[in-house]
Structures are given as structure tokens and as C-alpha cells.
Amino acid sequence: MELRQLRYLISIIDFGSFSKASGQLNVAQPALSQQIANLEAELETPVLIRSARGVVPTEAGVRLYRQARIILSQVEQAIAGARLSEFGDQFTGAVSVGLPTSTSTMIALPLIKKMRERFPQIHLRIVENLSGYLLEMLLKNRIDLAVNFSEEAVTGLSVEPMIEEDLFLVTSDPKDADVPIRLSDVASLPLSVPGLPHKMRSLIDSVCEQQKISLNVIADVDSLPVLRNIAASGMANVILPQSALAAPAALGNLYSRPIIEPRVSRPVSICRSEGAPKSRAIDATLDVLRQLVKELILDGTWRGVRLHEELADRAPSKDLEPRYKARMATKVNPPDFSSHLEM
């Protein structure tokens, strides 16, 4: 068994396709298929099920996939450790961060910029997807860190609250922009919101149930770009956090109003797997992410949020300051965006 076979298997399962994995790995598809065939022959069991709808792992493939993620992570740590012994306090390795779409819109680019400035030898991978799916990836060691919209403890995960994020009424009408609006008045307007089991919809429904309020929902839409376009077109109003408005709408201007009586808000936490291998690269990325969130809030870029007390009091870790020594030039891969839609 070769490490490249494990890398190929991980990529194929992640993308659900030989062709997509081939493009990502820059390996010809016949060569990719041959390596997986060699792997299955060595294991004497199939690891993938191929069909016209894509590729899914067998039970043996799932078990191998999980172990492969751990093995490759340990290899990266070993390489990073060898470099550290030769070059001092250098930070190297790959770190994958899972972000829901609205959070990604707000912090992905600033995070990449800060990581490139402070830790250029860390290869950052941004994975955008539904928060629930990101937690599943985290538990399977497919990513290293993930943002989640909950403070509740999850078995096998370390959950660190960061902020509380308010939800706003978003509309194309500039009248009364930034003027608070009662939830009971929001209920009388035509609305489009995510459908269940989306966490934002669960939160909205829970608050409305407590207040004995029924919303006038004309369409359930799980797409953030589509929700922004619906609001900008004037077809309906939507309910979103300010982070979701960081990118411009395609069809026009958007205006927001704070929802009050009661205020509707959601917790935002950062999670990591308790059983995954530890690395200084992950610790460094987590520290940069924490400080970035604080910076975006304190300078007014990220509106409608409140810092969790623990994060507000947390100072940057002095143990994670890179101290570089002269070394041979190494190739630094560009950031990797694996983008799926969520809010």
C-alpha cells in the first residue's frame, strides 16, 4: 500500500467522482483508476462502488478512508517535526477549516491573508458546506476545524463559543433601514427563509413558537445567493445575519433592520475533534481565527454580533509566534477552496 493510493482514495470519496478527483489531483483518470484497482487487489476487497450517479465508499472503504486521513495527518506532522528540528520554530503542514457560507463570506479571505502573512508554510484549505455536514466531516477527521451554530456539547468534539450573532430583516426597501422592527411585524410580511432542518430555520421557528407567532413564508430557500436575490428583487423579505450581506447581491441593493421583541440570535462556535492528531499548525490557525473574529467585530466590519466573554478576554498565544530561520525556498501551495452552499 502506498501513501499516494490513500491520497487518491480520500480525494475520490471527497469529490464523489473519479473525474473530479483526477482534475483536483492533476492525475490522469486511467492512472487513478489503476491505483485504486491495485489497492483493492492488495486488500482483496472493494473500497468503492461505481455507478452512473458517482462513486461512494463501501463499508471497508469508509473504514480505510478514516484511517487514511489519520495516517496522512501523522505523516504531515512527522515532516513538520523534521523541519522544525532543522529550521527552528517553523510552522508547516496542511490545515483544513470548515465554514458555513455566511461565515465564509465574512472571514475566509481575511483568514487566508493573515495566514499567508504569519504562517506562509501552512497550506490552508477552506471547505464551505452546511454546518451539520461540517461537524460530520470533523468527527471523521476529514477536516481539522469547523464553525458551528451551536454552543451545545458534542461527543468527541471540543466546542469553543466565539460570538452571538443577531438575525436581521433584509429587504430592498431603503425606508426605515437600520430601524428596529418587532418580530410580530416581521411575521406579517412576505418572507423567504431556509427550510428545515436548516439550523437557522429551526431557531426562527422556535422563537416564533414561543411568541405564538406564525410567519408568512412564501418559499423555503436554502441558497444564500438566491435569498439575497429574492430580497434585492423586492419579491419578498428574508431573514439573515449581517455576515451574509458581506458580499453584494446580484440584483440590487439590500437594507437591513434589527429584529426586536424578541431579538433573534444564534451562537457561533469553533469546533475541533478531540481524537484527531494534534499539530502546531492547527493550533496556530485556530489562534489566528480567534483573533481575526475579534478584530472584525471591534473595527466594525462584522456588525450585529457580540463577543463571547471567554474570547473577549483571550490574548494571542505567545507560544505560536513564528520565529523564522534562513532556509531553502520551498513551494507553497495556494489556498484550496472546496465550495458547497450554505448560510
Rank of each mutant, 00 (worst) to 15 (best):
V193M: 14
S233E: 08
G195P: 06
D222G: 14
P197D: 05
V226P: 00
P258M: 07
P267E: 03
A219Q: 14
I218C: 08
P174D: 13
I163A: 10
G275H: 06
E160R: 11
E209D: 10
G156F: 09
L254D: 07
L196G: 13
I218V: 15
D220N: 14
A187Y: 08
P241W: 09
V221T: 14
A219W: 00
A246Y: 13
I239R: 01
L169S: 06
I204K: 02
L183F: 06
S233N: 09
K199I: 14
R182F: 00
P197Y: 06
L183P: 04
E274P: 00
K175T: 12
V268T: 13
L240S: 03
S265G: 04
K175S: 13
G252H: 09
L254G: 07
I181W: 02
M200V: 09
R182H: 15
A250V: 07
L240Q: 03
R263L: 05
L245V: 06
V179D: 04
S192D: 04
S158W: 00
S192F: 01
A231N: 03
D176F: 09
G234Q: 09
E152Q: 15
I213P: 11
A244P: 08
M162A: 07
Q211C: 15
I181T: 04
S243W: 01
E160N: 05
K212R: 14
V264L: 11
P174H: 14
A219H: 09
S188W: 00
L240C: 10
A187K: 04
I239W: 01
A249W: 04
